[in-house]
């Protein structure tokens, strides 16, 4: 390394940092401007730290994946699409959801989007606001949102944020949501 050249009689110890399927993220390095040697134990510790840092980066990558890639849109046909939201929604994921949902809505122009919120993690009050934002944006591109699966704790936040007074369609179940938009589940 250019740095090491300048150091002349220096020391450089490096281990690769590997992530996921063995892809190389980079290197963990130790550097000094004096010459020295390392014991086996020291080198083992160093290489273990490199491995551990790889796992830490894995966590970052996985989190990114779940936040951005996890926007399942299930087309039901006849201009109806279902969006089952699960897990937790932070700022980044809300952004990803909004982007994906709006892109879909513009491309496919469904009349209705049924958003199932029952899988969301309880007590995330900020989520309600984001949900309302998504609903409003959908309205602008011509898709009516129907929210289903509101749990008691979510109902409280929805009410607190005055969502009830808005023109948001909320239904207790999928059956009723479908019924309200003119589709009927017919079991035989």
């Amino acid at each position: 390394m250019e740095v090491t050249k300048a150091l002349q009689a220096g020391t450089l110890l490096g281990v690769p940092i590997l992530v996921q399927n063995g892809e190389n993220y980079g290197t963990l390095c130790a550097l000094d401007d004096t010459s020295r040697s390392f014991t086996d134990e020291e080198m083992k510790l160093f290489s273990m730290m490199g491995k551990l840092l790889g796992y830490v980066i894995d966590v970052d990558i996985e989190r990114y994946k779940t936040q951005t890639a996890n926007v399942p849109l299930v087309p039901l046909g006849k201009g109806v699409v279902i969006l089952p939201l699960t897990g937790s929604v932070n700022e980044k994921r809300a952004e990803a959801i909004l982007e994906r949902v709006l892109a879909y809505s513009t491309d496919e122009s469904p009349d209705y989007m049924i958003i199932d919120v029952s899988g969301l993690i309880a007590r995330e009050e900020a989520m309600t606001e984001k949900l309302l934002y998504v609903v409003n944006c959908l309205e602008l591109v011509g898709t009516t949102a129907v929210i289903i699966g509101v749990r008691p704790d979510q109902a409280l936040t929805l009410h607190a944020s005055q969502m009830m007074s808005n023109e948001v369609i909320i239904k207790p179940s999928m059956t009723e949501a479908l019924h309200s938009i003119g589709l009927k589940l017919d079991w035989r």
């Binding site: 020391t11 963990l28 401007d33 020295r36 020291e42 510790l45």
Partner: peptide
């Protein structure tokens, strides 16, 4: 390790 610099590249 008693070494001056440690970094992640």
């Amino acid at each position: 390790l008693n070494i001056n610099t440690v970094y992640i590249a």
